[in-house]
Design a protein around this nucleic acid. Sequence first.
DNA 1: GAGATTACTTGCAAACCGCAAGTGAGTATA
DNA 2: TATACTCACTTGCGGTTTGCAAGTAATCTC
Lengths: 145, 145
Amino acid sequence: MTVKSQECRSDCPIAYALDFVGDKWTLLVLRDLILSQKRYFQEFLASNEQIASNILASRLKLFERAGLVTRADDPEHGRRVIYTPTEKALDLLPVILEILRWGAKYAPENGTPAELMRSMKKDRDGFIAEVRARHAVRRTVRDAR
Amino acid sequence: MTVKSQECRSDCPIAYALDFVGDKWTLLVLRDLILSQKRYFQEFLASNEQIASNILASRLKLFERAGLVTRADDPEHGRRVIYTPTEKALDLLPVILEILRWGAKYAPENGTPAELMRSMKKDRDGFIAEVRARHAVRRTVRDAR
DNA sequence: GAGATTACTTGCAAACCGCAAGTGAGTATA
DNA sequence: TATACTCACTTGCGGTTTGCAAGTAATCTC
């Protein structure tokens, strides 16, 4: 609960998208979820940006309601929960990459691995396909059990 | 003043970018500034999303400090102010377009002119170049006076 | 000089954020 | 069986930000 009322401000798709994505934390969590392939609450919590646990919890709840992640109990560990990005979330990858590109151009310091920057600049669409493939593999491995 | 403290949360360029762009209004104002070529306070205020005048004022002030817009008095009209996007702002166009694309895919209603959607999908880079060219022309016209 | 236009500012209540601490269920260790 | 630990949250609270309505001061129009 709390966070974000859900009437749309206009019929502009940008406004619609910003109702999901327009805040300081959402895209950072999605970055961890999609690019770093984090899955557990504690993993997100451990990011450099020091997100507070209540904010993280509210975002994950929101994501679930918005169909951006699925929530599943970890069969190997009692209370642990596994968060997995849906297609709708993976479709935000281009947004994240363009933001990364802009940030990298103007930020005084860039902590992104040089290799990632390189392969993203060299072949953006290929890079996106690769990331999607990684998640697809994960899903099938999990479903096979 | 108010809005956004300015220490960086990490060395991640995404986090850096979100400190500018991570809220519900910033990118909407930039949409108007860049895509709709709005220039005056009242024009931004008149958008469908009904931004409040104090929020708009604080954003424009922030933009100026961040080097996203330049502020100039209108020579033709006393108290009127002209806001113009800088290169740094125009570099956010790819971000805006990807957000538009995602929003258009998932929003129930899409109020974006079909023509704009088409030309953007058909040739994204060309579209970006076109928008940039429009702003460049404007600048030279203005500077010629 | 009266009224409109323009770019803001101010005041205030409600929502949201950030921090610190707590909770309750399951897990590993002795 | 007891103890400590892991894990995913929740709670409480003070401070910041937002959203709304109204106001202000400088220009322009008539």
